[in-house]
Nucleic acid binder design. Sequence first.
DNA 1: AATGAATGAGTATTCATTCAT
DNA 2: GATGAATGAATACTCATTCAT
Lengths: 210, 210, 210, 210
Amino acid sequence: MTAQRLTRQGRKRRQQLMSEAAKLFAHSGYYATRVIDIVKSAGVAKGLFYWYFENKETLFREIIKAARDDLRRAQARAIEGEKDPIKRISKGIAASLRFNAENEHLYLLFRSAGRQDRFAALVEESQQIHAEDTAAHIAAAIERSQLPPGDPMLLAHGVVATVFQYARLSASGSVDMDLDALCEFVVSYCLRALGASEVAVARKKARALH
Amino acid sequence: MTAQRLTRQGRKRRQQLMSEAAKLFAHSGYYATRVIDIVKSAGVAKGLFYWYFENKETLFREIIKAARDDLRRAQARAIEGEKDPIKRISKGIAASLRFNAENEHLYLLFRSAGRQDRFAALVEESQQIHAEDTAAHIAAAIERSQLPPGDPMLLAHGVVATVFQYARLSASGSVDMDLDALCEFVVSYCLRALGASEVAVARKKARALH
Amino acid sequence: MTAQRLTRQGRKRRQQLMSEAAKLFAHSGYYATRVIDIVKSAGVAKGLFYWYFENKETLFREIIKAARDDLRRAQARAIEGEKDPIKRISKGIAASLRFNAENEHLYLLFRSAGRQDRFAALVEESQQIHAEDTAAHIAAAIERSQLPPGDPMLLAHGVVATVFQYARLSASGSVDMDLDALCEFVVSYCLRALGASEVAVARKKARALH
Amino acid sequence: MTAQRLTRQGRKRRQQLMSEAAKLFAHSGYYATRVIDIVKSAGVAKGLFYWYFENKETLFREIIKAARDDLRRAQARAIEGEKDPIKRISKGIAASLRFNAENEHLYLLFRSAGRQDRFAALVEESQQIHAEDTAAHIAAAIERSQLPPGDPMLLAHGVVATVFQYARLSASGSVDMDLDALCEFVVSYCLRALGASEVAVARKKARALH
DNA sequence: AATGAATGAGTATTCATTCAT
DNA sequence: GATGAATGAATACTCATTCAT
């Protein structure tokens, strides 16, 4: 591979290779997917791979990052315009679950990455970003007393783990709920965990006292 | 390797190899740990590995299962004699966190396994077993109205994911709480998620009405 | 190795490897010939072997089959245009002996194969094909009363064994006849065994009676 | 292994190992039969093998020689007391076929040996011995004008090959004759090949002329 | 005699990467 | 841009043989 300016056809080819690779990585994991599998499924010769990519590892990282950004964008779109922090959290959770359902292979890819020690840092970093996004909303909610006091980042990590766990269960077919029901379940599970219901009860009580 | 009768020395050697292997697998992962690394770190010849184990993969699985069983035993010991379902859940969570803290390398090993596609099923299975253990207590708690109604397995999966997430954060040094504080935090987080606090509030209210 | 389109150079290289391998297998046998010996004697890197062949065993089988077909072709060429069954048998026998004399290494290869249990079936099969070729001529000769009645396949096996035995003796230098004399000897030996001379005598007698 | 005087039990054990080894070698061939297979099927530990035998190869040779001698003895017994050379040839052929039928595993062993380049000489030598036995009778028959003139060794090789070929076919189940019929067929096939029938015809004619 | 432990040389095969055309 | 050829380091696993007890 050389630093390069690609023609239109070149960009297309590169894109094609990435997309085939993503599928294969998602399905079989990093080690089990050989360079030759990728080029074969794109119908080109082995040597061409190195025209477009530096090596297998770099390609993998690139794919992972792209997947992560896609997910982030999906969340941003879902939250857009929503001001209430609790609702932002809820919508973000639902968007994650939906994204995973719709892009199962990106999700699998992400999981597969997390399974390779070489990429653990990358995934850790992604989860961190994710957690930070969530933590911001939690902090805002705490600020407005919609949630009881607590460390936003710490709580956010719990939420992220929960969402991923249920996305996994859903993808593996272990849960036979429809997507809407699952979203509703996970959202309320997380809100309870964050203490939203206690606050609601307390508020009611407070209001009653007046 | 062949079916065999081991002498005391043999059992010792086998044990030694397993333990060296566990450390290496935990530290470097399955692929990066070569058979030769294992025997070298035990100070014996290559061929001896195959006297005791069928192959690298089988050994790895064996180690994973042993680790899983160790964790389970630790939980069982912690819960022993405790009748109250909610307390069983709480003690189980704390035991898991403690076990991970004390046996960091077994924990890392477990994670490493989850990262290899070849062993995904094994880890999945372990998580399932784990979730079932937890689900039993949740069901009992619901039965006694200590928790609001819900699908025990579904809820259990959320708990398991949460516990593992925080064990991970703690192991990676991302949380600077001491172990006791962490246990307390995770326990209350999970109980809230399961709805324990709502029930408590409801009960209080009920009692107040009389 | 993967299904592939070979360039001219590729076909040439593949051919070269096969031919080097054939020599080595013939000389040292299957087990004693290592993949590295083959590539070394072709002056290429180890990995290239697996670009052209699936593995050592497959290559060996391929070579054996090629040798068998070569022999068959040599026989076919020798018989071509000959109508008389007895002469077809005779020419076939002579052609086999000549082929073995001229392609001693293919012959040795063939023997080497017969010596490996893994390939016994392959050689058995070849002998069968061989015997069938011969049996067809024997049947025709019986039909025309050039040979006394008998089971053609059964008789053919005797002929095949005899021919191979003498080819072996000749190759090992145990017989100090020239090739022509050997051919003559073996042909008449086999024809006698098939009963050709009795028939000839009977015919003479019959003619004498008229 | 050390030069040794064995106790009664020792001789028994050694015999047992040889017999198990013979079966395994016959069934799977030299390379495919591992030392461990031998000791296992005798129910003893690996190390014991080297108490009784120098190594695998030596054992194999020993077994081969024993098998060859058994066959020779069987032939000698069959011929014993028979004075007529032609009948000695016939009885020898029949005895060989019968021996192979009755001791299929020794026969297979012998074949297996012939298939290994390391033992080719051993088998060649055995065939030579065999051929010499037969050649002696052929020479005697020629002497008495029971067979037409010819090189006895050369002819004997043809007979040996034929006998082995049919023994093989019979063992592999390719011929569905009973043993007696097969003996009769092979005997007359060989006698024809040696020219016995021509001589008989010539004699008849000669007698007629008087 | 007998056992099970230990050795280590030997070999096939894989696969990312580079090269020549 | 594209192809197929070529490289070679890396690694799991086998098995005859020897050793200590």
